[in-house]
Design a protein around this nucleic acid. Structure first.
Lengths: 415, 415
DNA sequence: GCTCTTTTTTTCGAGCCTCGAAAAAAAGAA
DNA sequence: TTCTTTTTTTCGAGGCTCGAAAAAAAGAGC
């Protein structure tokens, strides 16, 4: 039983709507906002006037092109970059990066470094992260507004409340409560998110014309990840970040997977699996820890050059992805797919067998119509997805108190 | 971009909330409603007074047990049975049934009959359905309030807008726009829903303590169907009713499925598949059209009596369901499962190999903790699910116009 | 039998919020 | 300089929910 709507919720929600409209439209006029939200001009005027007073929005005076239209010119509203800032952190295999992002979404500072995540002790891993964040916080100008939110994206599984990393292939340590660790260290609200989910957020942000209501992002890398948006909402599991497409079962009792089980999609389509098959090693062989992008590129080149075990390996990968996508499509119906990550660079080798497999499944009813796109570089997407997620959180916090919001925004400096 | 909340939406939503609270609680007092909705007593008082005036609610005077409590006694509110009525229709293999249900959910009349759905011409199938509905409409008392909604449940796939049956195993005809057909014939709004989705609705209604936010209902019958509730919402595909668990791929290029493809779960776990395996026929053999429940019972008995091809067949079924549930759990995390339908009577034969398979998948992390329940009789569940769905539609229509609602409710008689 | 408690329900005024219409503002066009 | 056109603000009206207080409807106690 959902709770009833009280009167003050109304204002709060409509404020949220206005902020969200500005964030999506960039620099809309009040009239434009009224159009997209369906609220009346008077309401928009009242709300945006409040938000300007509170320092959340501002009138971007220098309207670029004096639109040459008749009538009173529109006044564009923008998100005030100084209204707040957020920190994004991305932790992936042997790699850590963090960025400071202002309220308008601009990266104002960032840092990245290589680490040996697989072998590092737990405390060291956490320590490196905290230190990097600490440097970012120390480095920002005194004039900058306080950091209001931190979002950490990891390769791996988080709990449904986005507070704990339950498991990750990049480290042997499990159940690290990153959200609480970050909150305790810096006094700033934090969440931990799955990297592929952040990729999905970023795609929707970047290419709304293609990735809007329903789409799937598949990360082809050492392992196989997935982020999915259904009916406009990020799809997550009931207890975890979910969407573990890479561990759907392709062949019962089949090839050995990095997760220790058998027959997972990843055990055929992950980099290590393609490598293993290309070398004609046994499918029971323990997966290699890491394979360089250069090696995978070389493998792909050889597969393109001539038929042989390399080409076969990519073919098998396509088959695994195809059948499992077919199973997924049986559940959710076909949707546009983005193939993300370095592995997407070899999509030409994967696509034929993948499409052939899909066509043999229930989801492949119109397999010709299913459209695939490739995004070879995942890191910027993850970072942007994190930023959007963090800023969205802030948007909803800013509107919450309704009135005294600005005392928290411009006032006390945290950490 | 969702639309802003206008002022009158507020009342509408809170009215919906009150109606929904009454429907869930049965006969709550105003105080109780205030508690569950979180709205103030004054608001509840105002809204329920309106709804009583409009003939949607009524004060159930004869309060059964004079609660022996001190203070002014609570006045129970109930849904007025005469506020509206709905018709539910269930179409399954060789079987058609329909019922007339009042606003409080009581079945006031019903009819059912056997048909040869597989061989009937399209028009005859439609004609039988229309005729049955016509008889129900003709048979109701003159005092009864107009039928405001019809919901048809079918075994098969419908489009996302619940207007057309896209495909069904019970007939060779496809793309039958049942919703429009019914609306044109009777002038009453109608939808077509997947039977398993209705089972899920009914389960949530019946056993909310077990089936609440997240659960799965799997129909074990000639084919394999699924209805799923995730985060409190019925899960459907993006373009169709979705959730075609039975056509996830268990073994690529495996056994021949009724759908014409190969390796679907159904091709191992549907009645015809179990039958085929028990008889040690080839997996390439065309599936039998229908197998009687008695035959399946006998098969199960023989499997229980001694090890042999029958027991093997059930074991294979369990394996197929187990691995595919494991894949599903990889996507959504484990959830309580209800095994519904006659096939659930042989769940004891299926369970061991199923659990073993699940344990070998990513979703089987805590396979011991995944709980299964059986509901051998699906028909009543489907009917009740339809009724609840229809009544929920009506609830939302009654509250919509806000004021003149009753003119439609008590006034003109449709059809 | 009467008064006191207790609990539920209704009433009433206050405070918000959104809306539509009208007014004001800010340009270009003539 | 005066019209048009378009955007934005202002203002009063109408609704809605809320909290407090009042009214209603019992049982409890003497």
């Amino acid at each position: 039983m959902t709770v009833g709507i009280r009167h003050d919720d109304l204002r709060r929600r409509n404020r949220a709507m206005v902020i969200s409209a500005v964030r999506h439209a960039g620099q809309p006029s009040r009239t434009e906002i009224a159009g997209t939200t369906g609220l009346s001009h008077s309401t928009i005027s009242a709300i945006s006037s409040d938000l300007i007073d509170e320092g959340v929005l501002f009138e971007t005076k220098g309207s670029d092109a004096p639109s040459a239209k008749r009538g009173r010119p529109q006044v564009a509203l923008g998100l005030k970059p100084s209204a707040a800032s957020v920190i994004t952190v991305v932790l992936s295999l042997n790699y850590l990066s963090a960025a400071l992002v202002d309220y308008a979404g601009n990266v104002t500072d960032q840092e990245q470094r290589r680490l040996s995540t697989l072998t590092m002790p737990r405390d060291e891993l956490i320590g490196e992260m905290l230190a990097m964040i600490r440097r970012l916080l120390a480095g920002r100008h005194a004039s900058m507004k306080p950091v209001m939110r931190m979002v950490l994206a990891i390769q791996g599984i988080t709990d449904a409340s986005a507070r704990t990393m339950l498991w990750s292939p990049i480290t042997m340590h499990a159940d690290i409560p990153f959200a609480s660790l970050l909150e305790d260290a810096f006094g700033i609200p934090a969440t931990v998110e799955n990297d592929c989910n952040m990729i999905a957020m970023a795609l929707r942000w970047h290419k709304p014309e293609r990735y809007r209501e329903d789409f799937i992002a598949i990360l082809l890398s050492h392992g196989i990840g997935m982020g999915m948006v259904l009916k406009g909402e990020l799809f997550t599991g009931t207890q975890s970040s979910g969407g573990e497409f890479g561990h759907m079962i392709h062949r019962p009792d089949g090839a050995l997977c990095r997760c220790g089980r058998r027959g997972c999609v990843e055990a055929y389509a992950g980099n290590y699996a393609i490598w293993r098959n290309a070398r004609q090693h046994s499918e029971d062989e323990t997966p290699a820890a890491d394979i360089s992008d250069a090696d995978m590129l070389e493998l792909a080149d050889r597969a393109r050059a001539q038929d042989g075990p390399e080409r076969q390996a990519f073919r098998k990968a396509g088959e695994a992805i195809g059948f499992s996508l077919g199973s997924l499509f049986a559940l959710i119906d076909p949707a546009p797919v983005a193939m993300v990550g370095h592995g997407a660079g070899a999509f030409d080798l994967i696509e034929p067998s993948m499409r052939e497999a899909i066509a043999r499944t229930a989801g492949g009813h119109h397999s010709k119509a299913i459209s695939f796109d490739t995004e070879p570089d995942e890191m910027p997407l993850i970072r942007e997805g994190c930023a959007m997620r963090a800023l969205t959180y802030v948007d909803h916090e800013i509107l919450a108190p309704g009135n005294g919001a600005l005392t928290d925004l411009t006032g006390k400096s945290v950490a």
